[in-house]
Amino acid sequence: MLNALVALMNFVVIPATAYGAQLALGALGVTLIYGILRFSNFAHGDTMAFGTMVTILLTWALQAAGVSLGPLPTALIAMPVGILGAAALLLLTDRFVYRFYRAQRAAPVILVIVSMGVMFVYNGLTRFVIGVDDQRFADGERFILSANAFRDWSGLDEGLALRTTQAITIVTAIIVVAALFWFLNRTRTGKSMRAFSDNEDLALLSGISPERVVMVTWLLVAALATIAGTLYGLDKTFKPFTYFQLLLPIFAAAIVGGLGSPIGAIAGGFIIAFAEVAITYPLRKILSYLLPEAWEPAGLVQLLATEYKFAVSFIILIVVLLIRPTGLFKGKAV
């Protein structure tokens, strides 16, 4: 019984929580852009890739120079610079691309297509600089709690491992989300962003400057995207194509939670992550601890192969769109 619980923690709960935190940070960026700029930004995955790439390049430089954080990954020092890099890229894109379409008062669907174009440009840019291959940049202590240490300590058959990157992901996500909510709910600029998202006409009447709100939004998005991307890269590896593929679960998370709703983005991130991990994980081991020996399943009891994990996001996305198009937290109708 305890073994089943530990196995569930080790193979489902902990990885899904870390993955969920990464998705939630990504979905927050998507939801902010949707709320303020009113379009679905398809370039978000590649924004994450670009910010992460800048972080990785600096991490390598720091590693070469012998700088390290001890048990923590060096990438944490490099991340602020990655955020600045992504912010510069986003602001330049806004200045030369999105602002033009805002001035034209382009329909949201046009902005979506524009963002796809931007996506391809970012995509090419990242691959051109760092290449298409897997890059590893994690260093420092690998485990906070290793499976063997846990087995020795508890005397159970199952081990429980907690990787440093998973712990960092969760802690960082909590800090970032708390800071974001503090900003949106307590500061003048944050409140003006919520007001702008709520009722643009009245925001303009109240003297809230749209260009300033848009700029602050891009800065927040740069930070969220780079942090999410770096955490994902530390936890797994960095590969530009994977980041492009992350777009689907991120969008699913944002839509499931309700586009435009920050709380929804977080909830959606965890729902998608837990569904993906739980459905693609072979449950045989857990069941074998729970069921009498005679009932032990012959197969793996894996509901879907891991190759199909994106199908899970897709199915959840479609079900939510059919049953509750505004998402769980009453975002704006899609």
């Binding site: 409140k191 919520r194 007001a195 709520d198 009722n199 009245l202 003297g207």
Partner: peptide
């Protein structure tokens, strides 16, 4: 119509009115 910020609190509505 649409003369308040529905998702903001009453006090935040007043604060936004004084944004300038």
């Amino acid at each position: 119509v649409r003369n308040i910020f529905t998702s903001l609190t009453v006090e935040e509505n007043l604060e936004m009115g004084a944004f300038l």
